[in-house]
Amino acid sequence: MISVQTGDFDTGAEYAALRASGSGTGAIATFTGLVRDSGDLSGVTGLFLEHYPGMTEAVIQGLIDEASRRWDVRDARVIHRVGRLALSDQIVFVGVCSAHRGDAFAACSFIMDALKTSAPFWKKEMTSDGEHWVEQKASDRERTQAWSSD
């Protein structure tokens, strides 16, 4: 399940959906990202996110497909919010279930790392001094690149 949405999400409901994936599921790994008060600059008061509709979902599906080729993925769920977000708002959820914890952890980490560099999202930070578009970080590119050697 993939959703790009403005509204919040319920991590408990997402976990329950993964847990219902079948009796072969032995592990669930999840990641939930939140809006924090620092990023490129300090004093962040909120974010604004845009995306490329249709292409964003296709890229995310490709990441899930790649994770499923590499690891035993029974089910995966990715939710990413767009629009205006306040401090501490949930921004992204990635959940993966598998028969074993190693596959669930690896697939969840891979999807989140690749999501940061591959999916067409644009993030603007709001601060007390104004707003600015966030550039992709070298550390995010390095984390994504590290998966290509696996």
Rank of each mutant, 00 (worst) to 15 (best):
G62V: 00
S148H: 08
F9I: 13
V94M: 09
A138T: 09
P53W: 12
E135V: 03
T32L: 14
S21R: 10
C108G: 01
T144K: 05
S149E: 14
A104S: 10
A106E: 14
L115F: 05
E125D: 11
T6A: 14
S149W: 04
L85H: 10
R141L: 15
I79Q: 03
R81N: 12
T117Y: 07
A16C: 02
A13E: 13
R101W: 08
Y52G: 02
R141G: 07
L115K: 05
K123D: 09
R74M: 08
S98E: 05
A17N: 07
V73P: 06
T144P: 00
L49Q: 04
L18F: 06
D140H: 10
Q145W: 05
V96R: 04
A114E: 15
I60L: 15
V82Y: 12
C108A: 09
D37W: 03
S3E: 15
A106G: 03
M1K: 10
S38V: 01
S42I: 06
S128M: 07
I28W: 03
S149T: 15
G46D: 11
Q145A: 15
G39T: 14
D72A: 11
L115G: 07
W147I: 04
W71A: 07
V59E: 14
S88V: 13
T30H: 15
D113P: 02
K124F: 06
V134E: 13
E125A: 01
A27Y: 02
D103L: 02
K123E: 07
V59A: 14
L34G: 01
